[in-house]
Write a protein that binds this DNA or RNA. Structure first.
Length: 870
DNA sequence: ATAGGGTTAG
């Protein structure tokens, strides 16, 4: 049985698979939703109806309220005064100004109209006269503040003082904070305003509380929930923070960063403080749960709780719930929420539609997505820039770039202006399709529109130019990013490490890694996995392993990708010698590796005799067997890529026994795949029916995944002398179109094949040419074999395949020559090849045979395993 | 208080 060998196991479960799945899923969704609609009578009340919406098993689930222990706030709540916070302790300075404020200025006034303003855009259309004056003052104040260095307290204070005459009501300061939240990147200014305005807004706890809420909101928008928390604690300590508003704002701040646990903790905190959470509080918690990837059942528990508290869910509740469903991948539930919202008294708005469209796009069902967009137009909800960028991204994920770009034209005709996110979506498409001219144009457009690049923009561009090998542009972008004050993210570092590693610039890559460690950003698996991968691929296996150590020490669990990467590195370690030119370029990595070599692998230090190398080989074997155990222990499930990696590792073994030892690990994971690989390796003909069934399963996977497996399997067969078996596997692959464009009668394209597969293929292809010759069919003037020349290789400067094929052609005496201006292409006049093929000895050279494998059984493995104490 | 964008293995 093939427990792990299913398409869903492949990480690249891939576009095609996802697409098919979603099409049927969507049909099912529509069906259930319709059934639901017809089955349910009009609800008596919104709450009752909402309760009905929840399936009973969800409503019966444990209430999140019962788990308050998990939701407690962090233990350390430093009061927001102290040596670590230089921007505090200055409120006295502005105290006099507060006294000067006449009572006529202390009125409450709605700030609603301006609260929805988004970054850099739009005015407050419906504001009253007085509102517009102060809103303009607040805006000018913010402009002035933004021109001051964020940490220059004196200048910030001066800037604020200069507006003292214009910013008169508390609301003016709330507004300054809101605008800072929208436009500022640094949290310092918001703090400064908070402390400066505290004495200005009057002595009342109400005003201070509002100021606090605005500050928490602003910090939340800046992605600084930690600082929002500190402000909140200050408010609590000052006696004006214990409000529903401050708590809700803090929950929302956590929600923005997807910190669900913290958000839930604050909800419990407010209950404990005797405050009754409002719909706003619950909405924010549900939002946090959705973003934080909390289990949907648990999230729905909050929904149930708010009904239980007698609160009426509103449109935003449902929108957040909808987002939670779609994030969890529960399209059916999303559809249910979407369908029933109307009946529950809250109609659908642009957020509802956009969220739903996104959920559908994420499943790859673009037809349905476009249909929903038509539906929204029919319901007088006009698609906006968000709708279009969602759709563009949807097409892009399916690699339908033309469709995506068409939408841009549509936006133009509708007069919808692209915003930053939309430009980022567009740039990502240009990067993927390699349209560098368009990238430049789009950047110029952004600039002329005053749209600033953000972290996502830079990451995209750095990745794009890195892929193109434009390291000059990469360096410029990094510099520009710093100059513009755009903070790098973990992704920025991963991308840079990847670029430099793939370029063979290990010293630079390592410096980026050091920078990253200094940045204080939270490390993630991807950063480590990709770094480990490139190091290993370039022969620096020991560095890779020590990095694995380091990541585990940091508490980051390796995932399948990490494990696959390391398995794949087995046997690739480069023997470093003093003459090796690359070692000189390694700089810090060399030193770094020196440490590892000492601690983990003394055999490789000093002279590198054959014995050392052998020892290292067996140490590697030992290590990798240990690794498999770790993988099982950590509950990481292997996938097809793991199998390919194991097979590749087998190909790099010096002895069949070592390979068998590795293959044995495969058996632990999947007996069926093991059986096929083992049978083919032993030359058992009867295994072929199973092999074909395995190939059929591979056919359901995406092309890179399956071709990698064919490559790995062929390689191991070739490596251990099962040449005819290897050729049979390759031909199966060709028949199933595993390699694109590989086989044409007069031009053989090998660039997607492994060395073993390619060699087996050359034999098969030449045999076919031979039969054409003997049939007397016409041929073109030249025959050619393409190998590529390593341009797309992940190993810097490598073109192994080219060299292997060159050697093969030489050894069999095939009269092909390297083309003068394309070293990846071998050509020969057809007449010359034909003459060679007609020679009597040629056929025997071309026919492949299985070398009899002597190592007949694996029972002699047992003592070896025991010796290794595994 | 709610919507869209940028990375890893073969």
């Amino acid at each position: 049985m093939a427990t792990h060998f299913t398409p869903s196991q492949a990480h690249a479960a891939s576009h095609k698979a996802a697409h098919h799945h979603s099409a049927s899923a969507a049909a099912a969704v529509t069906a259930t939703a319709t059934a639901r609609l017809h089955a349910s009578a009009p609800p008596a009340s919104a709450s009752a109806a909402a309760a009905a919406l929840c399936p009973p098993h969800l409503l019966a689930a444990a209430s999140p309220a019962s788990s308050s222990s998990a939701a407690c706030p962090p233990a350390h709540n430093p009061i927001f005064v102290g040596p670590g916070a230089p921007w505090v302790q200055q409120p006295q300075r502005a105290a006099a100004a507060a006294a000067a404020l006449g009572p006529e200025f202390r009125r409450t006034r709605t700030t609603r109209t301006i609260s929805k303003r988004t970054r850099g855009g739009g005015g407050s259309a419906g504001a009253q006269d007085r509102g517009r004056v102060s809103s303009a003052a607040a805006g000018r104040c913010v402009n002035k503040l933004l021109r001051v260095g964020p940490e220059d307290r004196r200048a910030l204070g001066a800037a604020l003082s200069s507006f003292r005459g214009e910013l008169v009501a508390p609301e003016d300061y709330y507004q300054v904070l809101r605008e800072l939240g929208d436009r500022d990147k640094s949290a310092y200014r918001a703090f400064e305003v908070f402390y400066a305005a505290l004495p200005l807004v009057g002595g009342g706890a109400v005003e201070k509380g509002k100021l606090l809420t605005a500050t928490i909101g602003a910090l939340g928008k800046m992605g600084r929930p930690d600082l929002a928390r500190r402000a909140f604690d200050t408010g609590i300590a000052g006696g004006y923070g214990n409000t529903v508003f401050a708590h809700s704002a803090l929950i929302s701040a956590y929600a923005r960063s997807g910190l669900a646990t913290e958000a839930m903790g604050v909800l419990e905190l407010m209950k404990g403080a005797g405050l009754r959470p409002t719909t706003v509080s619950y909405n924010a918690v549900i939002d946090a749960c959705g973003k934080g990837g909390v289990d949907l059942t648990f999230t729905l528990g909050y929904f149930r709780q708010m009904l239980h508290d007698g609160l009426c869910p509103d449109r935003k509740t449902f929108n957040s719930l909808l987002a939670a469903c779609s994030r969890a991948g529960h399209l059916e539930d999303a559809r249910a929420v979407f369908d029933e919202m109307i009946h529950l008294g809250s109609g659908r708005d642009i957020y509802t539609y956009n969220t739903f469209v996104d959920a559908i796009c994420k499943c790859g069902n673009m037809e349905l997505a476009m249909q929903v967009v038509l539906d929204m137009e029919a319901n007088n909800v006009n698609p906006n820039v968000v709708t279009y960028s969602t759709l563009m991204d949807g097409f892009s994920k399916l690699e339908k770039y033309d469709e995506a770009l068409k939408l841009r034209g549509k936006m133009k005709s509708l007069g919808i202006q692209l915003d930053r996110v939309c430009y980022n979506t567009l740039l990502a498409i240009y990067v993927k399709t390699g349209k560098y001219d368009e990238i430049a144009t789009a950047c110029e457009e952004m600039e002329s529109l005053g749209i600033e690049k953000d972290t996502v923009t830079y990451n995209s561009l750095i990745n794009g130019y890195g892929k193109q090998g434009r390291l000059d542009m990469v360096a410029f972008l990094v510099q520009d990013m710093r100059a513009q004050g755009v903070a790098p993210s973990v992704l920025t570092y991963s991308t840079l490490i990847d670029i430099y590693s793939k370029a063979g610039m290990h010293g630079d890559a390592f410096n980026v890694y050091l920078d990253f460690k200094e940045s204080g950003l939270k490390a993630d698996v991807v950063l480590f996995s990709s770094f480990i991968d490139t190091l290993a691929k370039n022969g620096l296996v020991e560095c890779a392993l020590s990095l694995l150590d380091e990541m585990m020490r940091m508490g980051i669990k390796p995932n399948v990708v990490t494990y696959n990467t390391i398995i794949d590195a087995f046997g690739k370690s480069k023997i470093l010698t003093e003459e090796d030119p690359e070692i000189g370029d390694m700089g810090i990595v060399g030193v770094y590796c020196g440490q590892i070599v000492r601690s983990a692998n003394p055999a490789t230090r000093g002279g590198r005799s054959a014995i050392d190398v052998r020892m290292r080989g067996s140490q590697e074997l030992f290590f990798i067997l240990e690794l498999f155990q770790k993988m099982v222990q950590q509950g990481v499930r292997p996938n097809v890529v793991t199998f390919s990696a194991i097979l590749n590792a087998c190909s790099r073994c010096n002895s069949f026994e070592d390979a068998a030892l590795l293959l044995e690990q495969l058996r632990l994971f999947d007996n069926f795949v093991y059986g096929v690989a083992y049978g083919l390796l032993m030359g058992h003909q009867e295994v072929w029916s199973q092999a074909r069934s395995l190939f059929n399963q591979l056919g359901r996977m995406d092309s890179p995944t399956s071709s990698a497996f064919y490559n790995a399997l062929t390689d191991v067969l070739w490596h251990f002398g099962q040449r005819q078996g290897a050729q049979q596997v390759v031909l199966e692959g060709v028949n199933r179109r595993v390699w694109e464009n590989t086989w044409s009668e007069f031009c053989l394209d090998l660039h997607l094949m492994s060395c073993g597969a390619a060699q087996a293929m050359v034999h098969a292809w030449l045999l076919n040419v031979r039969s054409i010759v003997f049939e007397g069919r016409a041929m073109p003037e030249f025959l050619s074999i393409l190998t590529g020349w390593g341009k797309h290789s992940k190993i810097a400067g490598s073109s192994t395949l080219r060299r292997v094929i060159e050697a093969l052609l030489l050894s069999i005496g095939a009269p092909f020559q390297v083309e003068r201006f394309n070293i990846g292409r071998f050509v020969s006049p057809s007449a010359v090849v034909a003459a060679w093929l007609r020679e009597s000895g040629t056929i025997n050279i071309l026919l492949l045979r299985n070398e009899r494998v002597q190592h007949a059984n694996l029972s002699n493995l047992v003592p070896r395993l025991q010796a290794l104490q595994l």
